[in-house]
Design a protein around this nucleic acid. Sequence first.
DNA 1: CAGTGAGCGAGCTTCCGCTTGACTT
Length: 983
Amino acid sequence: MPKKSKIIAALRAQLADCDELVLATDEDREGEAIAWHLVQLLKPDKLGVPVQRAVFHEITPAAVTAAFASMRAIDEHLVSAQETRRVLDRLAGYTMSPLLWQKISRGLSAGRVQSVAMTHIVRREHRRLAFVRADYAGAKAVVAAGGGAFEVSLVALAGRRLATGKDFDPSTGRLWADADARRARQADDGDAADVDDGGAADGDGDGDSDGDGGVSRRKNGGAAAASAKPPLQLKKTAAKAVVKALTAADGWAIDDVTRRGTRRRPPPPFITSTLQQESSRRLGMPAAKTMRVAQGLYERGLLTYMRTDNPTLSEQAVAATRSAIVDRYGGDHLGAGRVGAKPKSAQEAHEAIRPAGEVFLSPAEAGLEGDEARLYALVYRRTLASQMADAAVDTTTITVRSPPLPPPLLAQIRGGKAADGAPPAAEAGDDVGIFRASGTIVVFPGFLAVYSDAFGAHAEGGAGEADGGGDGGGAAAAGVSPSAASARPGTAAAAAQVLPDVVPGAPTTCSALDVVQHTTIPPARYTDASLVKELEALGVGRPSTYASIVETLVLRGYVTRGTRETAGRLPPQALAPRLTAFVVDQLLSRYFPSFVDAAFTADMERSLDAIAAGAADRQEYLASYYLGEGGLAASVARMEKEIDTAWARRLVLPGQGGGAGTADGGGGKRSAASKKKDVARGGGGLAAGAEVFVGPYGPYIELPRGVVDAAAAAGGGDAGREVIKASLPAATLADELSAERLEQILSRALDPVIGTDPATGLDVLVRTGRYGPYVQLGRDVDYVPEEKPKRKVGKKGLAAAAAAATAATAPSAADAADTASPPADAPALTADGKRVGKPKRASLLPGMDVGDVNLPTALRILSLPRLLGVHPTLGGEVKAGMGRFGPYVVHNGVFVSLKSTAAAAAAGRGGAGASGGDGGDDGEAPHVDALAADDSPAIAGDNEQWRQVLTVGLDEAVALLDKPRPPRRAFAADKAKRVKAAA
DNA sequence: CAGTGAGCGAGCTTCCGCTTGACTT
């Protein structure tokens, strides 16, 4: 620890004047080890200072006094357990990672925690790729009774329950053979959201809903009888026939009215994982940002410590919470003060995350802004909610029966596509359609008054949720609507409606009847929130690392995050595996299954507990893991020889007839729908026979020889080459590997020239590279590389080269006139007519692919950056260009982004096919007119950013450049470097 | 932060869990 030597020296100096050294680090494995290391560094024994260990969980006079009254020595066994953990993690990571470098690509990594997380993300994507959607029809009606009209949905027909999303097998798109048994089982398991089934970001805040006994007024058991038979998948034609038969028919009746009172319990106070989940879900903040903001609040004394797995509140905090509740909501909103269940892993080093202090500042009093204000309010509300009363919610369900259907239609429905050969039944009531509506009324809000489902920006996307009444505007909205919101197929759209007071048998009329078409939705991708929830449930990772686990996966290039930059390809917050993650998962899952299994961590924890208790020996444990015939070292060494590099790099996706390496061996029959997704086979054309690999330079497509010959013979291009390889962008997602897309990239790789640049006579090429599709001026052979100065090898040489590089660029930035003199697109010619240097290249715009670029567009892209003129007061050129972060203007090396207008922001968020049109178009009409006269409609089309680069004027640019700008943060630059190095 | 696009070569990459830091504009 050379960097900290000053601190250590200072501590030692102070220690010399002390009577006693008390170590009060956290009361867990890691905390004990920190205390132990302090002793090693400070060497109190040499100063004759005795050492004691104290532990307290809250900083109150009573707690600290009690802790100091019962001190102990450092627990060597506990320290030993921590060191075992540390050594094991390093043995695992530093042994497995090099295998990946050798077999796939340099810089990859594997580890006890990250590999489990990565594999979860990959397997979820496998299920999405293998997903076969099911279409099924239903009907909805508007009925009037008891003086009110309400909407009901068809739930049963001809004595059979209608199938819903859960009744379909996601891998076949057909009804489960045992659909009813499954449904019964689900009901038994309670309504706990099935994490693995796409209920991704279903928060923990729901509490339990224990039925309070309901009042049911039932006339007969028609609907109940219906559920005893296999569910019915209604076709659209049949639904239409039903609608036609029932429209204008008389004889509708209220069949049943059920009123069920339920209580919802408040959620427990926040711990790290739940804070991250709710912050992601309600505020749209990624886990890492949440932790950053929370740390800021902690450092200013507004929140308690933010890395904890203990949901209990100190006595002092309970008192503060309860007095805040009484002040703001009244005593009737006080709850029983239940204590939330602690996770098994909880070590109680800290209490729950809550507002700090003995009296909580309300969000308004805290005087915060932006993200800090939003996060503080979230914690404040959650803390209050945890001590508040249960909410009482009444759910009313009204069942309506239609008039009888005509017998021929009934026969058609019964004889139609049933899941089995059920005989046509003819029980009473089996000749009608059963419709149902349910409405929810909050009878007593309790904790919902402060912590409703609608609280937070997410409410914007969840308009149909139970008590979504008030919010509406959602001023704080960050434009976030996690994919999980749409992943609940069955969510009743009618949940929010207010139902009239009716009784069974009441006269009813139907005023409208329509067919409804449903489609099943694939499992949602993980988000920060749902992944953290999953990892915590598995016992993998710790509060201090949840946020960084995802960051590691992103940094290593395993995962792409849904951000503004990936808009149109990935929804906000979604975590999608890159192709690299698929091949790494293939290798690990097949040859080292325990390495990607969370059970390994659970085993490790048990062993560490035994070591901490003095019941096991750490050397033995580590040796059994690493050494010997079955140890990790030997098995990695064996696999190093056994694993074929080509196998390791070849991507096999679900539905493909892969080799032995398919991760989930799910061979068998495939539907036509899944075949369509195939990367390789079945596509016809060039993509037939193409295979996708991930190598040292990223993902690429390869066409083996026979296919190339055929393509060449068909007039494709260079014959005689054995294989064709074409790069894929590093950020390519698995669901973007359509046969059509591969075909496009391959045909461009065979013939990249799209025209000639009139100014230089050079060919203009379109290619796909690591960073995506780009255009290039001139073929590679038109250029010769610049003479490179010889450089020495080694670190000093590199440093010198870097220094030289900065020295070379610095003056040119300062003296723009100088650099601008040689025209950029007309480099010096050599004697044999070649150009010196590298060809000019530029990325296509977001949303464009190699197939949709023509010559004028390509030339336009290559023409950037565009000269706007000379700065009127300072001199020097002002230019506009398109950079990594969008359109910019630059002067003397100072860059300023062109601010996007409201319309631009909307286009960016929604991606290519976003709704458009409304709002704030006024000021832009002149620009659009200017573009209409432009000669390259292909670009002018719909890209707001492009429009900005083309139309920004000198005056506007100068105004932007002259405006004083806030200083930059150094940390961002540091991080960007690391990302770049990893990419 | 503001641009890239494999291919000579030597030496490099990597784990998990716990923290806070702070030169100048």
